[in-house]
Amino acid sequence: MDDATQALIAGIAADATPVRPINRMRGLAMVGLAFLLTEIVVLFALGARQGLMSGQVSVFFVVVNGLLLILGLSCIAAVVTMASPQVGANHDGPKWAMAMAGVLPLAGLLAATGAGVNGHLHVQGAHCMYLGLAASLLVGAALFVWLRRGAPVSPRLAGLYLGAGAGALGSVANGMACSDESIAHLGIWHVASVVIAALIGRYGVSRWLRW
């Protein structure tokens, strides 16, 4: 090896600094803590919905929030993994969860336009949508910080999953305080916050994930 090559290697090594390896469990723990803090704030500010502590909730409440929780967890797991890309990795889990959750707005629209059901499409229902979006901010910020520490090779997909995951968990957190448990309300307004957050992640946040 000639002197010029040795000098080049020495110069590169001199500027190198050790970095902490990305630990996926640390990322999941960070997002879990963000969700826990969000839930505490929501329950403190709005109070728990009636029947939550005693388990007296409707089937619609369980199904909608259960599907949104599955969607949120699958997106979060994918986002945390995408921060440290590897050959052969695929992230199809959130796509299946999105397909399952996609049934909810259809059911909500059918129920809202059915006989004897009025007012579910009224703009007052948007209050829950706004609360769901607000409740997604802390989880979204945690995922964003985690992705910025890594090197996602598909920023658009990562942004989509970031928004959908944060929106889904934000909607679940808000759902613990929402008193309306009809499928029309939950399927339309609670899912709407997830869709909006996903679009924001895909078209807004993704441009800040490039490296």
Rank of each mutant, 00 (worst) to 15 (best):
V80W: 04
V80F: 02
V80M: 05
V80A: 11
V80P: 09
M82L: 10
A83F: 10
S84N: 13
S84M: 05
P85N: 07
P85V: 05
Q86W: 07
Q86I: 03
Q86C: 03
Q86H: 08
V87S: 10
G88R: 07
G88D: 14
A89G: 08
A89D: 11
D92T: 01
G93Q: 01
G93L: 06
P94R: 01
P94G: 00
K95F: 13
K95G: 15
K95I: 14
A97I: 00
M98N: 12
A99G: 14
A99K: 02
M100W: 13
M100T: 00
A101Y: 07
A101K: 03
G102S: 06
G102N: 05
L104F: 03
P105T: 05
L106D: 01
A107R: 08
G108N: 04
L109E: 05
L110R: 13
A111W: 14
A112H: 08
T113L: 15
T113V: 12
T113F: 15
A115K: 05
G116Y: 07
V117H: 15
V117E: 15
V117S: 13
N118H: 15
G119A: 05
G119D: 09
H120P: 01
L121D: 11
L121T: 10
L121V: 06
H122G: 03
V123W: 15
V123F: 13
G125Q: 10
G125F: 08
G125I: 04
H127F: 13
H127G: 12
C128V: 13
M129R: 03
Y130R: 12
L131G: 06
G132M: 08
A135H: 00
S136Y: 02
V139S: 12
V139L: 04
V139D: 12
G140K: 09
G140A: 06
A141R: 04
A141H: 08
A142I: 07
A142S: 11
L143M: 10
F144I: 05
F144P: 04
V145R: 03
W146M: 02
W146S: 00
W146I: 01
L147E: 04
R148N: 14
R149D: 11
R149Y: 03
R149F: 03
G150H: 01
P152K: 06
P152W: 07
V153E: 00
V153C: 01
S154F: 09
S154Y: 11
S154A: 14
L157C: 07
L157Y: 03
A158E: 02
A158Y: 03
G159P: 06
G159L: 01
L160H: 07
L160M: 14
Y161Q: 09
Y161D: 10
G163S: 12
A164P: 08
A164T: 10
A164M: 06
A164I: 07
G165Q: 02
G165L: 00
G167P: 08
A168T: 09
A168E: 02
L169I: 13
G170P: 07
G170E: 05
S171T: 05
S171A: 11
S171K: 00
V172I: 08
V172Q: 11
A173F: 02
A173Q: 08
N174S: 11
M176I: 09
M176N: 15
A177D: 14
C178W: 10
S179P: 14
S179K: 12
S179M: 15
D180Y: 13
D180L: 13
D180C: 15
E181F: 03
E181T: 10
E181D: 09
